[in-house]
Each structure stands twice: as C-alpha cells, then as structure tokens.
Nucleic acid binder design. Sequence first.
DNA 1: GCCGTTTTCGGCCCGACTGTTTTCAGTCG
Length: 586
Amino acid sequence: MPVIYDEVRMKNIEIAEIFYQIAELIEMDQPSFRSRAYEKAARNLESLEEDIEQVYKIGGLKALEDIEGIGKSIAEKIEEYLKTGQVKEYQKMLKKCPVDLLNLTAVEGLGPRKIKILYQKLNAKNLKDLEKVAKQGKIKGLEGFGEKSQQNILQGIEFVKRDKGRFLLGAILPMVRKIIDNLKELKEVDQISLAGSARRMQETIGDADILVTSDNAEKVMDFFVKLSGIEKVWAKGPTRSSVRFKDGFDCDLRVIKKESYGSALQYFTGNKYHNILARRIAIASRLKLNEYGVFEGKKRIAGETEKEVYQALGLSYIEPELRENNGEIEAALRQAQGKPNGLPKVIDYGEIKGDCHVHSNWSDGLYTIEQMAKEAKKTGYQYIVITDHTADLKIAHGLNEERLLQQAEKIDKINKKFKKFKVLKGCEVNIRQNGSLDIDDQVLAKMDLVIASVHSGFKISQDQMTQRVIKAMENPHVDAIGHPTGRVLLKRDSYQIDLDKIFAAAKQTKTALEINAYFDRLDLSGKEIKKAIEAGAKLIIGTDGHQLKHLFYMELGIAQARRGWAEKKDILNALPLEKFLEYFNL
DNA sequence: GCCGTTTTCGGCCCGACTGTTTTCAGTCG
C-alpha cells in the first residue's frame, strides 16, 4: 500500500505500522485471532479521520476505546506510545525476532512463518542477509524449503529492490486493456472483464486482475502465460494464473464458469473490506457468499451477474469505484429498502462537456491552441478552457498581462473557425506566498475562467498555506483552485493545508475546486471530493493537459469524482456550454 | 484481542496455488 504520509496524523500512521508488525510477530509464533485484532486496529487507525493524539488528549483512554476495533489492551498500547514513544511489548517481541519485517514480507512468498525459520536457522534479519544466504545455497534443505523456494526468494528480492510495488493507474490501464484485447482474440474466451483495484480505478495499483469465463480454462491459461512481455510466471492453474510483465507489474487471470461470473467479478473487484462486509451481510441472512455465488445451504441463488449478487444480499447495485467500505454498503441497503440517503447517482464517464484545464505552446504545452481544441472537439466536448501558466512560472514560460491579452485576441480568431465548439479564455495564475496573484485584476477580469494554483513555496505552515489559498479564493476573479493539495502520487506529499476550511471557503466564495485529472496528481482524492461535496463546494475536472494525449486523462478524473460520490450536479463542466457560461456569469 | 439483534463466551471471510510433503502448511488475494 502506498503510504502517503500525512504529518497531521503522523502518530496514527506510526502506531498503525507498529500494530501491523505486532500482528506479523504474533503470526510467527502462533497464528491466531489475536493477530487479526491488531491488524484491524491498525487499519482503523490508518483510516481514522481524527489525529489520534488529539483524540487521546481530549478524551483519554476511554475515547481510544470508543474507536472501532480498539479495546482496553490496544488502547493502553496507544497511550503508552503517545507517552513514551514506544510500545514495550512490541520491543520485547522484536527482541525475540529482530527482523526487518516491512521489507522481508514484501518478498513474494515470504510470510511470518517462513521469515521466522529463516531468522532462527540462518540469522537472516533483512533483505541483505537473506540475499546472502540464498546465494550461498543455504536456504534449500531447511524444513519446508527446497531448491525452488531458494530461487524464488532470490528473484523476489530483486523485484523488491527494483520497485516499491505500486504503479500509477494511468500508466497501467492502457497496458491492461491491451492484454484484455489480446485475450479477446481467443475464441475460448467468452466474457472478460477487468477486476481488482484497477476496475475500482484506484489512483495507484499493485497488480492487475482480469476475469474470464470459458469452458476451456486450460487453453485460456496456456495462451495467457505465453503473452509477449511476460517476465515470470508466478503460478499457473486451471482457475488462477499469475504473471509478471517486464514493465514490473503483476497480472492475475482467473477463469470461472459462466454461472459464477457475477459473484467472481464482485469478489475479485474488492476491495477486501467491502467484501468482508458483504459476506457478513450474507451470513446474517443465513446465506453464504463466495466467488462461486450466493448460496442458501447448497443451493446457488445468485451468481451470474453482479447485480443479482447484490440483490440477493438485499442491496442495490454498487458501482466499482465506490467499493471501498466507505459507507456504500449501508447506503445500498437503505436504497434497496426505499429509505432516504441511498447511493449517489454518480457522474457517468460520458457526461463531461468540456475540459477546464488545458495548456498550449504559449506556455509549456506542446501543441497550439487550435490543435488542442480540435482534439477536444473530436472527443465530443463542447468547449475547452485554455489555462496557460502565468508570469511567475518562468520555467513554464508563464504569460504576463500583455501576452495574456494577445492570447485572448488569438482565441477570438480561432473561435471563428469552429462551429458548435468554443475555446474559452483562461489562465492558471500562481498564488504567491502572501496569497496575492501574479496577474493584475484588470486582466483577470477579461478572462472567462481563472484557475489559481500553488506552484511554489510548499513548505510553509498549515495556517499560512490555508490563509494563502483562502485569500486567493476571495479574489472575485478567481473561479477555481487548481490541484488543491499539491500532491504528486508516489513522489510528493500534499502540502500542509486545512481542507475543511478550504471547502467552507469554496462554498462561501463560490470558488470551484479542481479535480486535477493528470495521472500523477489526481488531486483532490476521492475521500476529499466526498467531503468537499458534503461541505457544499462545487467542482470542476481538468486534465492539466500539456499535449494531445493528455486530454484522455479525463477518464481518470471522472473516476476520481465517482470515487468521491460526485453526481453530475456537483461537477460544473458536466454543464453544457450555455449553462456553464451562465454559471460563471459570462 | 475485540465484539455483541447469536450480548460476557464463542466466533472472527474463505478458497486456490506452490512447494513441500505423502496429507498439508504457508501465503496470497
């Protein structure tokens, strides 16, 4: 999992990490439900919105115990960590088996039991030790290990060292779709679908899952493991095969029977916690849910489609992007029972009418305004907003007032060439440290849409950053805030900013917040989008496209909006041109 | 270790694959 550290909730992450490790350490000795309890507590701490330190400060031990999955014993360990910076019992366990669990468990095929044996017999404490004993041939011959295990460990170490195991959705999706197209050519493949985190359109994914129905699984698997670009076949069987591609990502293929397609798709789409909850609901109704169907005793009562699976559990259908155990099951239950507060009718992939954030070669884009506009029109949009960088962003050839006005004239000319399509005048101004903008108000007033973004001075306090952005929002010419948290996936964390205050200011100043669809930004995140909407803010989706093919990142932005439970009404550029202009008083 | 419309004890999601065994433990998703 990509741990995107959040300094405000740093203690939550630190303590969660310790609990995850305690869970592994317990498993080393004696697999038991005790370890699951720690795992669950860790998970809940990670996803807890509040800062655990604050929770404790305000409510003490009692408040800790009110958190789901945290009882007396675990609450005391949290208290101990907050007071002393360590957990004695964890230190004691670690002393007994002082290994680098984090990196060792990252090696494919190594779990707590095997790690323990490797430590006890060969004193392998970390990847370096492990690599050494594997190369010396000391692993084969250990109880439970053979030649194959030793080879796999060596290979696993290489993979761990090469990448940290996460990939950007925008980078993987095209490749997985190609794999699916390849498989479709096989006549033995009947139905086929993407599953897993890629189907949920998670921002980053660890591997790709594909699901197929076929009467000839063997043939499908034979074909799959021989696809070009495969570097390693992890496993090959009649129902599941797993491979690694040279680009470094793993792909799993599952073959199931037609009657189980829906339940398998549901199962393999996840996420894990959504599924656990779904299974609990099944159990409560005296049913059993697994990848083969929904069963009443031995009788299958659903399984062919996902819809009927959810229906059999008494739930409305839940879109894959929503399956995060983030309240969607409860909402689906209410909806199925005709109660209020059901599932949102999330925005559809075809409902965006224009791209709100596009660069041209006037600043750091690769193509002319006209080229970008033509491509956008081809994809079916009614408009785009050209939002080139402005003065302060020298590295991107930012436009000053004079050049912006020249560009506006140019856009007027270009618009005469288009029918049923409009290029709107905009810019992406920089929010300076003090909250002022790098373009004069008189010129901003002539723009159709002004996006204000933070592009420098990230390392200021949360208060300063929040005030800085709010000041920009209070400028009557600013229509939207670009990539509001500034994060770059797998590279850079968000800057410190109080989003609750930003969301409130967005509502008050009628400033839209951007869902930046660029594949390594996807900023805001799904969770943040949900909160923004709840706070009454409006959103726009922009690709931040710097070249033609970037315009297709819109799909990722829409996915992000869906993950944030956004409906069409929440997204301003789902409005047709006329209504969009009306909204911004143009 | 946690939890409670099965409520203070007994259950906690569950099946496939690998590598090692010779009936299964460990790992993964």
